[in-house]
Design a protein around this nucleic acid. Sequence first.
DNA 1: CCAGTAGGTTACTTGAAGTAAGTTACCTCC
DNA 2: GGAGGTAACTTACTTCAAGTAACCTACTGG
Lengths: 195, 195
Amino acid sequence: MPKAQRKAQMLEVAEAVFAERGYLAASMDEIAERVGVSKPMLYEYYGSKEGLLIGCVHRARTELLDRTQRAITGAEGPEEVLRRGLLAFFEFIVDHKQAWALLRQEAAVTVPSAVEEVEGIRRQQTDLIGAVITGLVPGIDQVEAEAFAEIVVGSTERLALWCERRPEIGPARATDYVVDVVWRGMAARITPDGG
Amino acid sequence: MPKAQRKAQMLEVAEAVFAERGYLAASMDEIAERVGVSKPMLYEYYGSKEGLLIGCVHRARTELLDRTQRAITGAEGPEEVLRRGLLAFFEFIVDHKQAWALLRQEAAVTVPSAVEEVEGIRRQQTDLIGAVITGLVPGIDQVEAEAFAEIVVGSTERLALWCERRPEIGPARATDYVVDVVWRGMAARITPDGG
DNA sequence: CCAGTAGGTTACTTGAAGTAAGTTACCTCC
DNA sequence: GGAGGTAACTTACTTCAAGTAACCTACTGG
């Protein structure tokens, strides 16, 4: 099997095993076995257990950014941007329960590099949102824009988890909550007329 | 040394070592050595490495709840409750940088039980906030109250982290941001006059 | 047919979690 | 005041998983 394909397959399996067992309890032997390959191959391609984890996180991160950006292009008006971005995120979660469990629970896990990588996902989202806000309200204080972005990301992440406990709340409704509460609060601050 | 005192000392040291090295890289041997005791004593009192971690988390959780509840008693009006609670949280973080790093980065780490314990902290906070909201607006939809509580907790947690990257933002200002954005957004929904 | 290399394996070392069995010293009760 | 029980502690081990060294195999180009 060609290297690229094997690497992709390893990420797939690793994501599943990490999500199932947790990072610590997951063993490289099990991952290797389920891939149908021997352990040194994992080390050949990813260097370490941590490297494999980071590979998983990185893959999820890339896809999330991709989907979010595609979702918000073409939106009309700030509320629409926020709404579409949020929806893309909530849908990403539904489609990638495994990856998401991994990100939230496992990746914050090891030595600094993995923490950095996960935190990088959130940074990526806050940067995107911060840029959108700054674009919409050019005169806004930079620190304030950052704070808003953090609030959006924090609310959203938490609501995503809450949705798992309450299956009747889907992406659409979760999006509504964030838009209704956070957007109105923000709008009241950044526009004279309250949004 | 009496058992209770030794146990407390172990938590103290463990928290520091976990925060310094990360949960994985922290070794029971090092913790034992820094406590000035041999490894089996740790196992005698906490059962496992994970048990020790959970002990740390539990301790932090208890203290956080304690401080928050003390902070909000005697507050006048809903906004004051929110404001005081938030301030208590942000101050807790400043006072407990180590514990906080542990909670956010490390505890979400291991087998399910630790995840549960950490998630329990957030549940504790959302329950408290949910109860406050329901108390303030008796007719509110229960699901909506929950969603608001999640939004408050998510925003706050994220802003706390953001504060670490921006030392010039202290607890007071972070509190302002959450109150200004989230409270106004909520108020617009739960009261007819928008605040 | 030979050589080089991509993709792979077996069998090992190392290091940390967890444990069994024993030791010290204090405190109590006859 | 000595026997005995128990709380606090240690040494010396086992086990299990991460990581590695050294070797193998089959295909491809000359």
